[in-house]
Nucleic acid binder design. Structure first.
Lengths: 277, 277
DNA sequence: TCCATTCTGTGAACAGTGTTCTCTGTTGCG
DNA sequence: CGCAACAGAGAACACTGTTCACAGAATGGA
């Protein structure tokens, strides 16, 4: 019960591929919404996969992940329940696809909102990331719950989820790094001394390496605690949104947008962003 | 889709009481683990309710809320599946009981840990609340997920959940108020200016009234932003724990205890607790 | 003590679920 | 054209939560 909490089901292979039992497990052309295949069959297959996901996402928005029924999806699509198993190995694989899509949609909403601002207005950008994240969550509560609520996927989150899942925090890091590069940062309120322990500094370094791998330009003279500050802002943001959506603010906070504003301002100050820009 | 998100099912009456169809809906003596009734029947009924909850909680710890099956519970108890409906109107009512019990158990773990410390060691107490909360969550991940993950209960959280659910944040407030009363607070790092908006100040006042109703002694000269600071610490704490348990720290934080320590220290500084005590 | 009332538990049944398997066409490629 | 790969249908299995009619037991008042 230590590492793999929430492992309800064992992992499975992804695609059924009935009459192609073993073969080289190479590139499975069945799943994913990747480059639409050229042959008519591959195009039809891709279209079917898209249809399933589209309908499933609509129903997810209405009944939530727990209430999502593959039979209901197939009814709406006018196909038999078993047909969907040509495209998804299980209900969990459909949910996984929705998970990946959800992370992408949230990430797109946030980066689009941020991209509409001048890059140097770092504090405004910081606030906009916070608010656009919340706006998306409020507009898509069930989808948000799928991403940041109780994990419902048995097997460990598949690799294709990790990149989309990091988009919001990476954008926060980008804003901070951009501000550092432009010399816009003020003195940080030193909430984080005593300095991070050796272990945490190691975490921060590994995190920086990951961020670099994602193609983000990292300043050389970065405060080693800055990645941790970004991560803390990130979890603070999602902690507040989850509390709002999951009902834990019921007897306390009612002005959620204003409240998030003060949180964003405080975290901006903690990472050293200027008051105004 | 605005107020009652996640309302999957309609609300229902709580107790079945088959042959007592209407009658005065007065005090329903069936549910709850309240004062064990004196008559043999009431005692047997209470024991049965306790047995169901005990077994359900054990299975919850193994398979999680989504995997909890009333048939499986009845199998383990050696009764027929329909028998449990004499005691709980639905599966959701069992989960509600587990919810209330979970809040109580978490609250007890935290307050017990805090009570073992001298009251004036406010900073140490603050840290202990943070860590004992996390310790309980790590030890009871599925139960934690039931409390703070995606809501699974259809109807709005019943009234009996709100008091137990507030115990951790109320304890945080008590520590801060105690420190204020003893003159132990330092200058706050003023992260929260500009001062809270009128709306948020109204939220803070209502929150104070609620806290007073719970019997907590509130100093008269309290900084009006202090309740908001406590709430922010609260959501920061649970945001970090949820991120850890739900797997969002996978590629960043690995030293979770150390990380929570820095978060607790920073939040202690934000609310004005002394460095050492 | 007897009896009607109330409660408790059972077993069958219903509607629904995810998933598998067998079978029948259809499609595409060599 | 013919054969292999695929796509879909439909029945079936093993579950699930819940309801209902029924039988037995405890209870409390006459």
């Amino acid at each position: 019960m230590s590492r793999t909490l929430f492992t309800l089901f064992d992992r499975k292979q992804l695609a059924p591929m009935q009459h192609a039992p073993s073969g080289p497990p190479g590139p499975t052309p069945s799943a994913g919404t990747g480059p639409r295949g050229t042959t008519p069959r591959e195009r039809a297959r891709g279209a079917m996969i898209d249809d399933v996901i589209t309908v499933a996402r609509r129903q997810l928005g209405e009944v939530g992940a727990a209430g999502l029924s593959v039979r209901s999806v197939t009814r709406e699509l006018g196909i038999s329940p078993s047909a969907v198993y040509r495209y998804f190995a299980s209900r969990d694989h459909i949910l996984t696809a929705l998970l990946v899509e959800g992370y992408s949609r949230l990430g797109a909403a946030v980066t689009d909102a941020d991209d509409a601002l001048p890059p140097d207005r770092v504090t405004t950008r910081w606030h906009r990331v916070w608010h656009s994240t919340r706006d998306w969550a409020v507009a898509n509560p069930h989808e948000y719950a799928l991403l940041y609520g109780t994990p419902v996927i048995g097997y460990a989150a598949p690799p294709e989820t990790v990149e989309p899942a990091t988009r919001v925090v990476v954008r926060l890091a980008e804003i901070l790094f951009h501000a550092a590069r432009r010399g816009l940062l003020t003195e940080r309120l030193d909430l984080s001394d005593p300095a991070p322990t050796a272990g945490l500094r190691a975490d921060a370094e590994a995190l920086m390496a990951t961020i670099r791998e994602l193609g983000v330009a990292v300043p050389d003279d970065l405060d080693p605690a800055d990645p941790l500050r970004v991560v803390n802002a990130w979890s603070e943001l999602f902690g507040a949104i989850s509390f709002e959506l999951f009902g834990h603010y019921v007897r306390s906070i009612t002005r959620h947008a204003e409240h998030l504003d003060t949180l964003a301002a405080a975290s901006a100050r903690q990472v050293g962003l200027p008051e105004q820009d």
